[in-house]
């Protein structure tokens, strides 16, 4: 049975008027592809402090398929009982969105910036490398994930203050050693000169 274009138009107008939604005109959506990562878990054993930024181990993303594909990095919770969910906005990925040729890989730098008001406690979530499906309508996506876990301390904790001191000391090396040593040497020298008179002469 042939349907004229006028009748087709009439049919569409009728359906729209009747309150139909047009969903997923396949095969407009292309979902074939894949994704792989080289880590399954990152467990941060040091306690982390609110308001600070941490660099995490890199994760390598691989395109296992035979076609070039686009990928996006993200993070989220897994709804583990008794554990807090990390928030995607706390993480930054470099690069965040990228393309990979068939079987190519991309190393991704991950950092975590905890807000000042982050609730203390045990966190458990996922870092995801997600295949970006193309097209419109009902899409099927896949992601390869790695678990991440960390503990956030109470603000004002003495341990947090000590870790802050150590991190400053580490960040400023070697000056964190040199400056206090020079300062100490000068102070000792000044004290010695004040109390003793040293005279060095060639004989």
């Amino acid at each position: 049975m042939k349907v004229s274009s006028r009748h087709k138009l009439h049919l569409v107008v009728t359906l729209v008027t009747a309150g139909f939604a047009l969903l997923a005109f396949a095969p407009a959506a292309k979902a074939d592809g894949g994704v792989a990562v080289d880590l399954s878990e990152i467990a941060v054993e040091d306690h982390l402090d609110p308001g600070r930024r941490y660099e995490l181990p890199r994760i390598t993303v691989r395109n296992p398929g035979d076609e070039p594909s686009s990928y996006r990095m993200s993070a989220g919770g897994v709804g583990d009982d008794g554990l807090l969910d990390p928030v995607d906005e706390w993480f930054s990925f470099e690069p965040n969105i990228f393309e990979l040729d068939a079987h190519a890989t991309q190393a991704v730098v991950i950092s975590l910036r905890l807000p000042e008001d982050v609730p203390p406690g045990d966190y458990s979530g996922l870092l995801r490398a997600e295949l970006l499906p193309e097209g419109e309508g009902s899409l099927v996506g896949v992601a390869a994930g790695a678990r991440i876990s960390f503990v956030v301390t109470e603000p004002g904790d003495l341990g947090a203050f000590l870790r802050w001191l150590v991190s400053i000391f580490t960040a400023l090396m070697p000056w964190s050693y040199i400056v206090p040593l020079v300062l100490l040497a000068v102070l000792v020298s000044a004290l010695v000169q004040r109390r003793f008179r040293i005279r060095i002469e060639a004989r």
């Binding site: 994704v35 467990a43 054993e45 296992p64 390869a144």
Partner: peptide, 16 residues
């Protein structure tokens, strides 16, 4: 930081 290697790999084919 303890890191466990051997990550996941997943492929998809088809649409809804």
């Amino acid at each position: 930081v303890s890191v466990v290697g051997g990550g996941a790999c997943i492929e998809v084919a088809g649409v809804f």
